[in-house]
Amino acid sequence: MTAIIPLLPEEAGAATAPVRRRRRGRWRLLLRTPGRVFGFAVIALFTLMAIIGPYLYPRNLPIDPSAIYAGPSLAHPLGTDFEGTDVLALIVTGARYVLLSAVIAAAVTIAIGTAAGLASGYYRGLADSSIMRVTDFVLTIPGFPLLIVLSTVWDFGSPYSMGLVLGIVGWGGLARAVRSQTLSLRERSFLEAARGLGLPGRHIIWREILPNVAPYIAMNLLLSITGAIYAEVGLFFLGVVPFNTSNWGVMLNIAVFSAGAVTSPQALTYLLSPLICILLLTLAIVLLLNAVDEWFNPRLREI
């Protein structure tokens, strides 16, 4: 195959911008709008808190019986709780459990959901129907009540077990969504061409299909993080999980049920602090969501 046919080259390189450096372009996306800057900053702050927070304070936070439910002051910027512990310290040390379990839950959801969705969408047939039966079963599990039941027999003191359980009951929806995306991609001619060229199935799944469903998965990753935060904070708030750990949910529970923060202004900062943290975190995640599409779609990224 040596003959080079003289052909009319269709446009060589006139008037075209150089191809952009990919990596830098992507990171810049996160900072393109004020909303994303805010979202990115808040998430970075909480992540930092979760990583180094517990090292900033002693293992057992000091109590101060003389300042129970104290208001904000220089010594206690967010006031204190029922035993005079600094609320800021509680927030900072509590971040790790909340974030870690949420990230684990999301990771488990994504891993199982994506794998199941891709496999059943691509292989179809028997694999598809068996995976989808399992998915339907998972979808019918009422997650929250199950957690309440589980908590009676299982100690959720560790964020790992909490995240694992949340993830395992939560991947059904994603698997279905990824499957339908995969099925519709399967009809696109570039996948037909890949099969026709003899490219192996795993190449097609990981290199051809996955990048196209990635924005979808990333979107779900962020949404399932918020979902997991709500679920676990809710569990602690309801008090169905033993409080042997500092946690934003525990704070909320005590603030409402013991301190009467809803009726007495004293413990207002004690109630509001975890609440605002949760809201900030979910808001930040939602603000970052709209960068996801551009992150994965080269067409949008370029503009």
């Binding site: 009319l8 269709e10 446009e11 006139a14 008037a15 075209t16």
Partner: peptide, 11 residues
């Protein structure tokens, strides 16, 4: 064949 390609708004 016509050489080149039709320009778009930018080109």
């Amino acid at each position: 064949a016509l050489p080149g390609r039709p320009p778009d708004l930018l080109t």
